[in-house]
């Protein structure tokens, strides 16, 4: 925090208020998001519908509105929240353990691995259930490969790991191009392109049941390990002197960060920027301590992606690809933040 900030007398300066606002914001935005959409439902009706399973309220709304709230908006918003949280916390974790402020949640090639897995499944099987299975498997495989390359070096460093991730990412990105090249342009290619582009447009309750538990587990594990990430972000000699098995913790954190990123990619394709900028925004608010940055990233990641998705689904009748919006809105917003305040890193 700069001196100027410390002199600020506004409510925002109070750390307790700030923390409260930070963790309330996803809840507030979630409720607001439930009220907006292409199908116009009056706000009181929204809340009546929401409370109808718990209280005896006479249904004076058409059943189609219930479908919109419970089967369309709710699963989508839950999914968006957890994808935002997953991308943000895995980004923050990678930035911490790799000691590099420029890495993002897919730095170890998980997104391209998953993308290739999905493309392969689309080409090989007519059955869409294989797509998610392959995507997830290849996403994990890509990170495993990066880790393996890294382990070939006796004196492996975080830099080597980042480079291994880039190598694996480039390899799978080429394989994606090859898969697109051989795909039938009328049938298979659009499917691959749409999978890679990602969309929350057709999220259903089943998707939530399939992916959210994985994400919740990953997020909880990373949150529990946030102190270790703090230690791992010190340089290796210091960490060793604290008696930690660096390699073991690094591997566990990479595994769970990858697990939730792969889940997010399976749901919504490759969404850029979230895993990179959300941790920075978190650091601006709560400082560089990872034990605070990780939970703050979860809250900000949820809020941020909910807002972006609200724009994607309401601005015009056709869905704007969310990966496009996160870049178009995220990049200038990040630039604005940089101008107002130096992005913290220590």
């Amino acid at each position: 925090m700069s001196q100027k900030q410390n002199g600020d007398k506004s409510v925002w300066a109070n750390p307790k208020v700030r923390t409260a606002l930070l963790f309330l914001s996803p809840v507030i935005i979630f409720l607001i998001s439930l009220c907006v959409g292409r199908y116009i439902i009056p706000i009181p009706t929204v809340f009546k519908i929401l409370s109808s399973p718990f209280f005896a309220i006479e249904a004076d709304w058409p059943s189609i509105m219930e479908t919109v709230i419970f089967n369309v908006r709710l699963p989508r918003l839950v999914m968006v929240s957890f994808v935002g949280a997953s991308l943000a916390i895995s980004g923050a974790s990678f930035q911490g353990i790799l000691k590099n402020p420029l890495v993002s949640s897919d730095i170890l090639g998980v997104a391209y691995g998953a993308g290739f897995g999905a493309a392969l499944a689309i080409l090989l099987f007519p059955d869409p259930t294989m797509i998610q299975f392959f995507a997830f498997g290849f996403g994990m495989l890509a990170v495993g490969l990066a880790y393996m390359i890294n382990s070939f070096y006796k004196r492996s460093s975080t830099l080597i790991l980042v480079l291994s991730g880039i190598i694996v990412g480039a390899f799978f990105s080429s394989l994606i191009s090859l898969a697109k090249y051989t795909a039938d342009p009328e049938t298979k290619l659009p499917e691959i392109v749409f999978w890679l582009l990602g969309s929350f447009a057709s999220i259903r309750v089943e998707d939530v049941i399939q992916y959210v538990p994985l994400m919740v587990i990953g997020i909880i594990v990373l949150l529990l390990l946030r102190w270790r990430i703090n230690v791992l972000s010190l340089d290796d000699m210091q960490a060793k002197s604290l008696g930690l098995n660096i390699k073991k913790y690094q591997a566990v954190i990479v595994f769970f960060a990858t697990l939730i990123t792969a889940s997010a990619v399976c749901v919504s394709g490759i969404i850029s920027w979230v895993g990179l900028i959300v941790p920075h925004i978190a650091r601006m608010i709560v400082g560089p301590n990872n034990s605070k940055v990780l939970p703050a990233s979860v809250a900000i990641g949820m809020t941020y992606l909910l807002v972006i998705d609200d724009i994607a689904r309401t601005l015009v009748a056709n869905e704007i690809p969310i990966g496009v919006l996160t870049g178009v809105i995220g990049a200038p917003f990040f630039g604005y933040l940089l101008l107002r305040q130096r992005v913290g890193w220590s």
Binding site: R38, R73, S199, A317
Partner: peptide
């Protein structure tokens, strides 16, 4: 209200449009 062929929309948008007839292309 929107332009172009093969546009992606949400199911919510289709519920809002509530068409009388749905025609489906492709094999």
């Amino acid at each position: 209200e929107i332009d172009g062929n093969m546009q992606t929309v949400s199911l919510e948008q289709i519920l809002a449009w509530n068409p009388d007839l749905i025609l489906i292309g492709s094999a």
